[in-house]
Design a binder for these strands. Structure first.
Lengths: 339, 339
DNA sequence: AGATGTTAATAAAACGTTTTACTAAAACGA
DNA sequence: TCGTTTTAGTAAAACGTTTTATTAACATCT
């Protein structure tokens, strides 16, 4: 039988108020023996307070919504991990929502989360255009922060990553290693982070006075398949090195290279982006740009919790810095020029 | 201002009952014009019913708890994905709990999930011993099904995988490819699935009348680090092939091989277990045993939902069958004998 | 002895729904 | 026309807590 506070109260011969007070540690004015009696009863009966009923009156659920494209992608999984950990520590738990970048599903979920009265949501939504974001914010009247997304205005709460600089760093490394014919497999360019990374690629080229060659860039999809396809397109166009806009696609690229008999890095240098865990295990280990996803997830929680508790959105959005991780997928060419 | 049913009712000049009836589609006895008026009002005000209040009275939250060791591990991530998808389709949503195989955390989360009144939980808990499972089941008085876990009794609800057969298949493949000195990097042996996989390894050896050599087996941890360490231990012990008890460790093994200058499969054949997505992209592509994690997750949801809705636990636990996926990490030796 | 303060506890309202049982009015059948 | 059924709707209880205001009993101070 499911215990309720009323039952406990009756058994202990006290009022529900008393039980409630004890459970919530507002003991000051409760006699020691009464408290002990009630506590023992709770212990014995295995009573657990009904969070639903509590939420009803406290107006908070201690629940966070987490919307990401696909938990199966290690990139998002690591963010999710950082988020779940930080949330737990802050006394919150997390509802997981996979959106597949699907706008419609995103909206449905937002609505669900509203019905469920989550205290706030963390949204990783690479695909949404700026005006859609505004729309979301307007529609969803609770704390919501964008993760993996650069803030667009002062008012927008978000934690992001300096993608442009990251890509710049990567391509500069390629150039310093003596490459001049540098290709790029981008992310889906409707996506802001993909644009930024592409910009960084261009930045580095420009700095080195290398002419960008449109033949050398192909738009990918941030999936393994995109990397694979990209390599097959690029393979006969003479590039000696390639920036691949995320590690996940880079894995696809490795696969294509293997199948096409292209040796990394002897025949083709590859540099990735994200530094997923497995990148260390690839053969050869993938040189890539490190993005601290777990920390970013934690930061997102910090921001949303502060928003929830203070009632005020964080005044500034957070931007994380890239760091190049050099491993073995980039070949140093003899004629390398120093910058 | 947050809308409530009462407000809507007042605006429409009807009772809350009427509004409730309309929202829940129990319209039969509501006049068309009244309904339209109310519906319009709901639309205009952006009113969303309060799920908490509803749960209060319906006694169900349409929420599932999902407890897994670590979402960062693609093995669990794919299960989670299958689960979330199936749950959504069935009208449920999912609270994500990472346990890190930590017994204590597991218990805390179970308690939290009880407080939150989840309708059921799916538990992927490789580490728990059998009596602990019993304990959990007893303590947690709601529908709960074990995933990635073979049923131990008729009464236990679970969906699992035939690990033993899978490992057997893998090792038989090694033997058929001409290997006789076959090593094994197992999972953590306190863990049932690890034991089963190890047994399968032994089975195949026995069938081929090959003497098991304890020098050739090392206990791993199902993490990349374990695979790495395993290879370093095994490398000078003369094995020509190695079963690695999961792909995740196999990646670590690849890393170690690269660092030690061991060529796969020329110097050492490797066969994995799980068939994670990235295994296709490894160089060389990893031969492995396919485990249909997404389908298993879906099945788990099917079972729990049926339990929730019928009030009866599923009568039989489900066992999924292994399938060998041959790629390029196993070398065919000339002197190969056919079985 | 009366006023004041402190301690230990409680009754009742509130949260926002769903559901049950009920009713008033209109329509129908004979 | 009267009785019956159907239609359109409602009042009120219930769900399990938290919180506010209140009280009764007792101790302390002057």
């Amino acid at each position: 039988m499911k215990m309720t506070m009323k039952e406990i109260a009756k058994m202990a011969g006290v009022s529900v108020t008393t039980v409630s007070l004890i459970i919530n540690g507002k003991d000051q004015s409760i006699g020691a023996e009464t408290r002990d009696r009630v506590l023992k009863l709770i212990e014995e009966t295995g009573y657990v307070p009904n969070g639903i009923a509590r939420s009803m009156i406290t107006k908070q659920t201690r629940t966070l919504g987490l919307m990401i494209p696909d938990i199966t992608n290690p990139y998002f999984a690591s963010m999710a991990r950082g988020i779940e950990d930080a949330a737990r520590k802050a006394g919150y738990h997390v509802i997981l929502c996979n959106t597949d970048e699907n706008q419609e599903r995103e909206m449905e979920y937002l609505q669900l989360l509203r019905r469920q009265n989550v205290d706030g949501v963390i949204l990783v939504s690479a695909a949404t255009a700026e005006h859609e974001e505004k729309q979301i914010l307007k529609e969803f009247k609770r704390p919501l922060i964008f993760l993996d997304r650069r803030g667009t205005e002062q008012t927008e709460a978000s934690v992001g990553f300096d993608n442009r600089k990251g890509a710049y760093l990567a391509v500069r490394h390629l150039i310093e290693s003596g490459h001049e014919k540098i290709g790029c497999i981008t992310g889906p360019l409707k996506n802001k982070s993909a644009q930024e990374r592409y910009q960084g690629y261009l930045d580095a080229l420009k700095e080195a006075k290398l002419d960008p060659n449109p033949e050398w860039v192909v738009e990918g999809d941030y999936q393994m398949a995109g990397g694979e396809a990209g390599i097959r397109i690029l393979k006969d166009r003479g590039v000696t090195a390639c920036l691949i806009a995320n590690d996940w696609m880079a894995y696809g690229a490795y696969k294509a290279c293997y199948e096409e008999g292209i040796q990394i890095p002897q025949d083709l240098s590859i540099i990735g982006f994200d530094d997923l865990l497995i990148s260390q295990a690839m053969i050869p280990p993938l040189t890539t740009v490190h993005q601290p996803n777990i920390a970013m997830g934690e930061m997102a929680v910090e921001q949303i919790v502060s928003w929830i508790q203070s009632g005020k959105p964080p005044k500034e959005s957070k931007l994380f810095e890239p760091r190049l991780v050099v491993r073995n997928s980039v070949r140093k060419r003899k004629e390398g020029r120093k910058s």
